[in-house]
């Protein structure tokens, strides 16, 4: 999809994301209708079975977010695929994953209050989810520390992997632990004697709709990251010009016109590997407000 499909200049949504958003909204409406009206209550759990159309799907999206974060981190650390877009994807999906993880815990807690009579129990799945949340909140805090972008990206990627490898260990640990404690609180899906056709359909729909929502959120979170890095790069180009003008007679803050009329600063300005992307353009245009080289923009979604 080329950027020309955008209607309003300056809008960050493309046609694809708008279609995706509309589909998601429609899906959510259908899901609510099916979940709250069409599908029947359960024999065992009464009306609260309707939470099954929210809770498992959001848990899956949380795991998906953390999984994407780990895979993107590996892709960033692997020298042959290193690119900041992996770093941005890791950050974006981790944040969306954290959001879904909170939803999972809150909705599960409400459900648990009804089913088990307690808001929280030290069930392996609950403990694992809570630990994952804690670990990835730490990861997001680390991402916000700033500093050299390459350093931050590497640090974050290694942390993401450190966080993620804890998952199997935690999983083993908590299952042994519960085995020891003879804990009888089990995940409830398996206990439903039979799933009604509408229930099954609605549940499947919930996974589809939440995946759409996940994709929409990650795309927009990525757009935010892109805009942040672009703002930083703008500052960077001006900072170099400013810095070099300290040495020359040209006044600081000389406008772009002087870049074409004569060298603002001594020496050719090199192609600069900026924080987020490579800028390989003529020295003059580096200082000038420039149009996007649109043909180089990759296929939008």
């Amino acid at each position: 999809m080329t950027p020309s499909s955008r209607q309003r200049p300056g809008a960050t949504s493309s046609r694809a994301t708008r279609i995706l958003g509309a589909l998601t909204l429609a899906g959510l409406a259908v899901l609510a209708f099916l979940g709250l009206y069409v599908s029947p209550p359960d024999g065992l759990q009464g009306e609260t079975v309707r939470l099954i159309y929210v809770h498992p799907a959001s848990a899956t999206m949380a795991y998906l977010g953390f999984g994407v974060c780990a895979v993107a981190s590996i892709a960033f650390l692997w020298p042959r695929t290193r690119s900041y877009r992996w770093d941005r994807l890791a950050g974006a999906s981790a944040e969306v994953g954290v959001a879904f993880c909170v939803v999972t815990i809150v909705s599960g807690s409400i459900w648990g209050r009804y089913s088990w009579g307690v808001w929280w129990t030290w069930d392996p799945r609950l403990t694992l989810t809570a630990l994952l949340l804690a670990v990835f909140v730490g990861y997001l805090a680390l991402r916000r520390t700033g500093g050299d972008p390459l350093g931050r990206a590497k640090r974050s990627a290694i942390t993401a992997l450190c966080c993620f490898v804890v998952v199997p260990v935690d999983h083993e640990a908590t299952s042994w632990w519960v085995g020891l404690h003879q804990n009888d609180t089990l995940f409830r899906i398996g206990k439903s004697p039979l799933i009604h056709g509408w229930q099954l359909a609605t549940m499947l729909l919930s996974f589809v709709v939440f995946t759409l929502l996940f994709a929409w959120m990650v795309l927009h979170r990525l757009a935010i990251e892109s805009m942040e890095s672009r703002l930083e790069d703008e500052g960077y180009v001006w900072a170099i010009a400013e810095r070099r003008s300290e040495s020359g007679p040209a006044p600081a803050g000389a406008t772009a016109s002087s870049a074409s009329s004569g060298p603002l600063v001594a020496g050719p300005l090199p192609p600069v590997a900026t924080s987020q992307r490579m800028v390989q353009e003529a020295p003059g245009s580096l200082l000038a407000p420039r149009p996007l080289p649109r043909e180089r923009g990759e296929a939008g979604l």
């Binding site: 500093g147 050299d148 960077y236 900072a239 020496g267 050719p268």
Partner: peptide, 19 residues
């Protein structure tokens, strides 16, 4: 060194050094 650029954070401490 040819046109060497180095950053501290986002500040270009070196903005094109030849040495």
């Amino acid at each position: 060194l040819r046109s060497a650029v180095a950053l501290v954070g986002r500040f270009p401490v070196l903005a094109g050094v030849d040495l």
